[in-house]
Structure formats: structure tokens, C-alpha cells
Design a protein around this nucleic acid. Sequence first.
DNA 1: ACATAGACCTGTTGGC
DNA 2: TGCCAACAGGTCTATG
Length: 295
Amino acid sequence: MPELPEVEIVRRGLAPAMEGASFVSVLLNRAGLRFPFDPGFAERLQNERVHRLTRRAKYIIAETDSGLGLAIHLGMTGRFTIERAAGTTPLTAAMHYYRHDPDPRHDHVIFAMSRGEVIRYNDVRRFGYMTLFPAARIDEHRLFKGLGAEPLSSELTPAYLISRARGKTQPVKNFLLDQRVIGGLGNIYACEALFRAGLPPDAEAGALARGKRGPAAAERLCAAIKGVLEDALLAGGSSIKDYRHADGTVGGFQEKFDVYGREGHACRKDCGGVIERRVQQGRSTFFCPRCQARF
DNA sequence: ACATAGACCTGTTGGC
DNA sequence: TGCCAACAGGTCTATG
């Protein structure tokens, strides 16, 4: 599922239930997700009070008063739901992706918080993971130290894109998906950003650093990345295969995709082109052959 | 350094 | 209707 906008929406939804609250108990329903849980995972969290909840790339990070960090990656299908303990009013912030009512067979982790919220982590495919680390050492952690620019921050500039792309022969879409270059883009937003920038997904990344057109393309691409992520955030993220909830907590950006999942449909720019799908790096790439014909 | 393929999992969808 | 292949928002590893 989740790329940067979805992860950020989940973070914002969790924050009111987690920040300032302590873990009363942590229940693990299995030995691991993508990886086995750290030894003592549940015990180490118990009684820890969450100081703040942040995000880096596609990771949600809880930091506790005593300096323990909890990193959470949602993989493809990870999602959280929040409810009050039995007998009280449900919170409005239910963050369901994919489905309204997650299958309880896939509730793998349950956090009981000190103010009464019960937070469940549900993950059908179990590609997600959680791990504990010393919060002050985040920059040395193997998950984080190699991460590239945070795309909505001032770290991401046309000059940064150019410097990272220089000499690269790989397709520009693969370049965008490389978390060591930009942290947080995934398949959907990489496709959408390339469409907005008018760049062919299979163009050489290194071309951003060359010639007369390179810098202009880098400029457009940088703006397109930020723009599509901001638009998606405003729309509450994208929820494929889901429908909107009355409380608006499920995203609606999927209705605004220009190319993703639109194979065979007319280009929204009315250029006369039809959106095509091609497999790149084992992933579907969607693009308009007219609007994205030339670098 | 890079590309590709396969692996990890389960569920849904589309074609025959 | 039933079955099976293809595909799904993400990484990670092995291999060339």
C-alpha cells in the first residue's frame, strides 16, 4: 500500500492515541512479521511513554521518554486501527486501507495504551516489520543511514536530483524508486511524478545531468514529485480497492491518478494518447506515450 | 554499478 | 460457476 502520503496519514492518525500515552501491554500474535520480532520486543515497550511520533521516508517512528525508538514499516498491506477499550465510544480515527473491516486473523500486534486506546496492527501479507533501536542513534541504524532525501523537505532540490543522477544509466523510474536517492516514493507516485514532469519512464536517469534539457527536466521532476505528494496528502492518501469512509479517513487520491492503473484509458491531458502499461524492474509502469515521449 | 529474477506472503481479479 | 494465472502500495538477496 503505503507510500509516503499514506504513511504520513497513518502517522497523523496514530499520533493522538500514542503521543503522551504509555504502552500498558503489547501483544504479539505471532513470532514475527517480515522478520522475527526483536527479543523482548513486547517487554521492552511495556510502560514506555511515547514522547513523539515522527516519520522518515516510509517509516513511522515512535520515540519514548527513555530514548527507545520503535520503527514501523507497513510493507504492502500493513494498516492500523484504533478503538477504545470495550464499553466506550469508538474513536473516529480508524485508519483502514484496503477494507473497511480488517480480518482479525491478520491482527499481528496489539498495543494497549494508557489512555484506553487499543491499537491493532493488521498486515495480510506480512511484509511489514517493527524493530526497536536507540532513538538517539537513528542516523547509524542500518534502516535509516542509507536513506535519501526526504522529498517534501528542502533536501530535495533539482540540484540534488542532478547530482545523484549524474552518470547513471538506469531508467529514471528506477532511479526514483531507489530509497537511497529519495525516501518515500513508491510505484504509484513515481509513475505520477514522471507523468507530471512529462518524462519517459525508461529515459536514462543520467540525462537529468546532461545537455540543455537535463536541468530543465530535473526542475520539472523535482516540482512534480513534491506536487504529487502534497496533492495526495491533501486528499488523505490513496486507497486502492477501497471506498471512501464517512469520516474521510480513507484517502481519495486514487481518483485523481493521471496514469496509475489507467491502462487503455485516454490521457487526461486530451493529447489523444492512450495510457500504456509496461513492466520495469518487475513493477508495472503506467505512462502516456504522447505526453511522455521525449526527455 | 546495474539489471533481472526470485523470494517473502495472502488475497483479489480477470480470462477462459 | 470454477479454476488458474496474473497481479498487488515494498524491499531484500542471489546471480549475471
